[in-house]
Amino acid sequence: MNNKIIGFCVIFMIIVVILFLFGIKYKCLNFDNTINLSAILTFFSVLIATFAFIVTLNNSNNNQKQYNEQQKQKKLADERNQALNIAGWFNGYSDPSADRSYPRAKVTIINSTNIPVYQMFIFMVPNKNEIEFEKLNNSGNTSPHLIKYLELVKPGETNTEVNAGGNFAGGGHDSVAILFKDASSKYWYRSNFGSLKEINQTQVFDKFQTNSIFGPYQQYSN
């Protein structure tokens, strides 16, 4: 028996005692040689009605809590739904003979929803390990030279190029991690291994400050 049921039972017993004493005080219940059958039936009818009221109230509260929890879960699912349909990946390098300071990675971004996402940052990170948001650091994968800023990503496919680190020993190459803001102005980070995580604005601000990524972000669009 859980604590709620115990609590209701205690309340019910208190009510029974109160009604019982009330019946004696006002002589609704007589315990002399004469049994007031009508009064006893009335008393127990009141008890049954009171108990039914308590049970109904308890069920109503439980139903309301379940409904509220369902609505909360639905809201969370709806908020996450857009972010789940945003992804990006590495498509190889562009012409290596071009005279550039950095190799250029070809990147594809897919927005499978019917509304855009905003303020997307594309990070070129090594493919050997998953780079979670907390692991983005000054070792190179958040260098201002190796990111791309897209003010808006419309529904469908977007192809772009990003400065990259290039191939490295052991068959390593660049991979893609993205940070973006959904239509509800919530930030999401999808790692290069595909993991999706909601990131609060303070975390984003602190990460950018630590890694010298300052606005206006349009400077990272090229």
Results as ranks from 00 to 15, higher is better:
residue 1 M to I: 10
residue 1 M to N: 11
residue 3 N to G: 05
residue 3 N to T: 13
residue 8 F to D: 14
residue 11 I to C: 13
residue 12 F to S: 11
residue 16 V to C: 07
residue 27 K to G: 07
residue 30 N to F: 10
residue 30 N to E: 11
residue 32 D to G: 10
residue 34 T to N: 15
residue 36 N to K: 15
residue 37 L to F: 11
residue 43 F to W: 03
residue 43 F to N: 07
residue 45 S to W: 11
residue 47 L to Q: 14
residue 47 L to Y: 01
residue 50 T to V: 02
residue 52 A to V: 15
residue 53 F to Y: 09
residue 56 T to G: 10
residue 60 S to V: 07
residue 60 S to L: 04
residue 62 N to Y: 07
residue 64 Q to C: 01
residue 66 Q to N: 15
residue 66 Q to P: 01
residue 68 N to M: 04
residue 69 E to A: 06
residue 69 E to D: 10
residue 70 Q to P: 00
residue 80 R to C: 05
residue 87 A to T: 12
residue 87 A to E: 12
residue 90 F to A: 04
residue 93 Y to I: 12
residue 96 P to G: 08
residue 97 S to Y: 05
residue 97 S to W: 06
residue 98 A to V: 06
residue 98 A to M: 08
residue 100 R to N: 13
residue 104 R to F: 13
residue 106 K to W: 03
residue 107 V to E: 12
residue 107 V to S: 08
residue 108 T to F: 03
residue 110 I to T: 08
residue 110 I to C: 12
residue 114 N to L: 08
residue 115 I to K: 09
residue 122 I to A: 02
residue 125 V to N: 13
residue 126 P to K: 06
residue 131 I to P: 02
residue 132 E to C: 09
residue 132 E to N: 09
residue 133 F to P: 05
residue 134 E to K: 13
residue 135 K to Y: 06
residue 136 L to G: 09
residue 137 N to Q: 02
residue 137 N to L: 06
residue 140 G to T: 02
residue 140 G to W: 02
residue 140 G to D: 02
residue 144 P to Y: 09
residue 149 Y to N: 06
residue 151 E to R: 07
residue 152 L to K: 12
residue 152 L to M: 15
residue 152 L to C: 14
residue 154 K to R: 07
residue 155 P to W: 13
residue 164 A to F: 04
residue 165 G to Y: 05
residue 166 G to M: 06
residue 166 G to V: 06
residue 167 N to M: 12
residue 171 G to S: 12
residue 175 S to N: 12
residue 175 S to L: 07
residue 177 A to W: 09
residue 178 I to L: 09
residue 178 I to K: 00
residue 179 L to P: 00
residue 180 F to V: 01
residue 187 Y to I: 03
residue 191 S to I: 09
residue 193 F to S: 14
residue 194 G to A: 10
residue 196 L to F: 05
residue 197 K to Y: 03
residue 197 K to D: 04
residue 201 Q to E: 15
residue 207 K to R: 06
residue 207 K to V: 11
residue 208 F to G: 05
residue 212 S to D: 14
residue 213 I to P: 02
residue 217 Y to E: 08
residue 221 S to Q: 10
residue 221 S to I: 10
